[in-house]
Design a protein around this nucleic acid. Structure first.
Length: 875
RNA sequence: GGGGCUGUAGCUCAGUGGGAGAGCGUCUGCUUGGCGUGCAGAAGGUCGGGGGUUCAAGUCCCCUCAGCUCCA
């Protein structure tokens, strides 16, 4: 049997399809609206809600091969046989359908009868308290191959969520005569060589872990299993490591091609000493790291992650930079990362089309990150050299951890490199101190987490949104919350005084909560007894809606009926900008190309901001085309069609979805079309009914946001008018001031600027000539006092400069007429003069290469003669 | 979300409260049969923006904008 990765995957899915499972495609690596998770880290993550019983599952049995990403084990990647950042997990799931018995039998049947693994090499573990699971296993495997382990308990993914005891299946890589050497208690040697590899983890998901850490019985008993594709492939393909399987090997081969024969030279470029022994022993590890990270980066980029300095983008950046760093240790000097993309695609294009579709984009991103990182490294090396010189001067052998941390923290210079460089210079890095600094940084960062959306409340609420059709609605107040100064939330039964930082939750609301870039509504909530001003509306993670604001007057208590009224003009103008955003998006794709993806969006009542992927500056011509295209569609008076339909239907029809959003089964679509689609997006925002309502569209600015991402700000309708007013009055004022026509202001001002430069230069030239004439009439003897009439007080330097040309070390003693001051100017190199002046308590003023001394009321100063005398006597 | 750093000539960056600089690049002249080279000279600056302290701010303080970076 040829167990290539495609065959392993399809065999798994087909097996469960034959056992009445619905086979679903892998979900994106980016989890749905869950701020507690950066990435999908296990096959069950997309079904968290189904497991918890919050969502009724559409299918009771599901099987997937899910893309997963974990950063937790990154330090192990490459060093062990089993860790990866990006990996695939084969999983079968049951939501209240089959449980322990069937799941165990499915697993055993598939492994031994389909994949034909040798049953003698399989071991299993069950949770310490799980008699039932052990009982089931006893009928399948000999009892000496079953172990009970206390840590056989999985989950939750994130802080809260479904979890439960598990049973694991291990594959024995090699024989060990020690009878006590078992999974979970291997002998030291076997642990090192990874005798047992966990290939399948079956979780009996029957609990929900809440915020307090309590385990609560779930309404139904579930099965959640996960089998690492890479591990299974290693076994079935009989390879020494997972990197030798067809999931990695072509990537390794490609990377190896870039390793230069003259490795030493590459090391010298980075000021690192080359150590042949070290290089060879670490070669495989580094090769694995580079392959793993670049493979992972390609998948993250394909799912819409863009390198940035926070969140998911930051993880991606770190991943790419680590790959580049280790490529340097490997002996690769040229930019290579983008050239690896094709070999990743070659492996996965039939399985994950998104990887193939975004390949050009991935290459661009990798290459620009690589360039940026190299630039960083060279800055870091500059700083390192400074430290080094300082240390050598003071004869110190240790680079203190704070300096190493500065390199890392502020300059983004990897610690590994600092250590290497130090070694080569006979220095050592205080890594302990570095770690302390890192710990401090982490503690500090954790302190202020105050995203209101992730606040947990011990009760479930539900708010129905009716604001697409209505802007005013009556509703019941079902919760009152106070935001405390320490950013925690407190449930109240009533409030009676005017107070800020209050949140009201109602059962129904016309208020739109911030989502999809569109800002939350403002407005008022009121009845006969109170008036509450809503300054922002936010959606909580669990679905209900916060009306955030302040109580202006009266008192509110739980259960009150009240009217909710949205600020009409604000909402209307926001809708105008939202529809305009869709038109802009479509125009960008038309003018610039389909590599344009939305990378961020803000829709407010007075402007819109749209971030998108694009790699060059947009020229004026393109910008004009985009603007015209949008305005053209506004003039066409096209209807904006809102429809609800199944997600897959919408996607098949060509609707644009965001990579970073997870959509429900039934989605809301916003469509604008004439003969063909102009714009077709999945969107929950509020829109105008017809494009003509937008009125007019104007791009205000275009700039680079970060590498590969650009931002356009634009304004429509009335807010544009106020911007126009502002500019109009500025321009009018300028025209009036310069007494010119509006069209000619620019020419006029540039003429003034160049005139004034020329005038300045002329004046200086004239002054030089004038003073030269004065000086020509003076006979220079050493240290005589020059009586001089200055045109302006600052001109003295011009005079001194003129003298200096012929007498470089001239000590100028100037008696400035009409000011009763003597000013002495001399070259800073004449150090012997410094003491003379400071003995008389005279302040020396630095003037670049000169020192200046001012002596006021010199005619009354007896000591002046002494000074003159001493100046003459010097040397 | 929380820190750290940077912003000065086209580029890379110095700059201690006192005339805005260096190297590279550009231009001109000389050097050469011509191109390197060498020499001499020149152009090029809202010192990110705004406010404050000071006789005097690129430099100190506050605000702001932009970029880089680490952590969560």
């Amino acid at each position: 049997m040829n167990w290539d990765h495609k065959n392993i995957r399809s065999t798994f899915l087909r097996y469960f399809e034959n056992n009445n499972h619905k086979v679903l495609n892998s979900y994106s690596l980016i989890p749905d609206n869950d701020p507690s998770l950066l990435f999908v880290a296990a096959g069950m993550v997309p079904f968290k809600a189904e497991f918890s019983g919050k969502v009724k599952p559409k299918y009771l049995r599901i099987a997937t091969c899910q893309k997963c990403f974990r950063m937790d084990d990154i330090d192990n990647v490459g060093y062990t046989l089993r860790h990866h950042t990006f990996f695939e997990m084969l999983g079968n799931f049951s939501f209240g359908d089959y449980f322990k018995y069937e799941s165990i039998h499915y697993a055993w049947d598939l492994l031994t009868n389909v994949y034909k693994l040798d049953p003698n090499k399989l071991w299993v573990s069950v949770h310490t308290d799980d008699d039932e699971a052990e009982e089931i296993w006893r009928s399948i495997v000999p009892s000496e191959k079953i172990v009970r382990l206390s840590d056989n308990f999985w989950g939750p993914a994130g802080l809260t969520g479904p979890c439960g005891p598990s049973t694991e299946i291990f594959y024995e890589n090699f024989y060990c005569p020690n009878v006590n050497c078992k999974p979970g208690s291997e002998c030291l040697e076997c642990e090192k060589k990874e005798r047992f590899i966990e290939i399948w983890n079956i979780v009996f998901t029957q609990y929900f872990k809440n915020e307090k850490g309590e385990l609560i019985d779930l309404p139904q008993k579930n099965i959640d299993t996960g089998m690492g594709l890479e591990r299974l492939a290693r076994i079935l393909q009989n390879k020494p490591t997972q990197y030798h399987t067809d999931l990695f090997y072509p990537i390794l081969i490609k990377i190896e091609q870039f390793i230069e024969k003259d490795v030493e030279k590459v090391y010298n470029d980075f000021n690192i000493q080359f150590d042949l022994n070290n290089y060879l022993s670490k070669r495989d590890i580094y090769l694995n790291i580079v392959a793993d990270h670049l493979r992972g980066a390609v998948f993250l980029i394909s799912d819409g992650v863009i390198p940035s300095n926070d969140g998911r983008g930051y993880v991606l950046r770190k991943l790419i930079r680590r790959a580049i760093l280790y490529s340097k240790f490997l002996g690769i000097s040229k930019e290579f990362s983008h050239e690896i993309v094709d070999s990743v695609i070659e492996i996965f294009k039939d399985v994950y089309p998104e990887v193939y579709l975004r390949s050009e984009f991935s290459k661009k991103i990798l290459n620009s990150e690589e360039k940026a990182f190299i630039k960083n490294i060279s800055k870091g090396i500059n700083y390192f050299n400074k430290i080094k010189e300082e240390l050598i001067k003071n004869n110190i052998k240790v680079i203190d951890g704070k300096k190493a941390f500065y390199l890392y923290d502020t300059l983004g210079f990897p610690l590994e490199l600092t250590i290497e460089l130090a070694k080569n210079n006979g220095l050592r890095v205080d890594v302990d101190e570095f770690n302390k600094e890192m710990e401090l940084q982490k503690i500090q960062s954790r302190q202020n987490k105050n995203d209101i959306k992730v606040f947990s409340i011990n009760r479930q609420f539900k708010t129905e949104f009716v604001g697409y059709d209505k802007l005013k609605e009556q509703a019941n107040i079902i919760a009152i919350l106070k935001i405390n100064s320490n950013k925690t939330l407190e449930l109240l039964n009533e409030i009676s005084n005017p107070e800020d930082d209050i949140i009201l939750i109602t059962d129904v609301t016309p208020f739109y909560a911030e989502a999809g870039g569109q800002v939350g509504d403002k407005g008022i909530i009121f009845n006969d007894n109170f008036k509450f001003q809503v300054i922002d509306t936010q959606k909580h993670v669990e679905g209900f809606i916060f009306h955030i604001g302040k109580l202006l007057q009266g008192y509110v208590k739980l259960g009150d009926k009240a009217y909710l009224e949205v600020d009409f003009y604000r909402r209307k103008l926001t809708a105008i900008h939202h529809t305009a955003t869709h038109l802009l998006h479509s125009a960008l794709r038309k003018v610039l190309g389909t590599h344009v993806y939305q990378a961020g969006s803000l829709v407010d009542y007075d402007r819109l901001r749209f971030d998108f992927t694009h790699f060059q500056a947009i020229n004026d011509n393109e910008l004009k085309n985009i603007e015209e295209l949008v305005n053209e569609i506004i003039l066409k008076e096209l209807d904006v069609l809102i429809e609800y339909k199944p997600l897959n239907v919408a996607l098949e029809e060509g609707a644009i979805a965001l990579f970073t959003e997870k959509y429900p089964e039934n989605v809301r679509t916003v469509k604008i079309m004439d003969d063909e689609f102009i714009s077709y997006e999945l969107c929950g925002g509020t829109h105008v009914k017809n494009t003509s309502f937008i009125g007019v569209f104007k791009i205000i600015s275009e700039k680079s946001l970060q590498l590969g991402v650009r931002r356009i700000e634009a304004v429509s309708n009335l807010p544009l008018l106020s911007i126009f007013d502002k500019f109009y009055s500025i321009v009018n004022n300028l025209a009036a001031l310069t007494n010119t026509d509006i069209d000619k202001i620019k020419d006029y001002i540039s003429k003034i600027i160049s005139d004034s430069k020329n005038l300045k230069q002329s004046i200086i030239n004239l002054k030089k000539k004038y003073y030269q004439l004065l000086l020509d009439s003076i006979k220079f003897e050493d240290n005589n006092i020059i009586n001089i009439n200055l045109l302006e007080e600052d001109d003295l330097l011009i005079v001194h400069d003129l003298i200096k040309i012929k007498n470089p070390n001239y000590i100028g003693i100037y008696n400035v007429q009409d000011t009763n001051k003597v000013i002495i100017i001399f070259n800073s190199t004449l150090k012997e003069l410094l003491d003379i002046f400071s003995n008389y308590n005279l302040k020396l003023i630095n003037l670049g290469n000169f020192k200046k001394v001012i002596i006021n009321n010199f005619s009354n100063q007896e000591f002046f003669k002494d000074i003159l005398y001493k100046i003459k006597q010097r040397n």
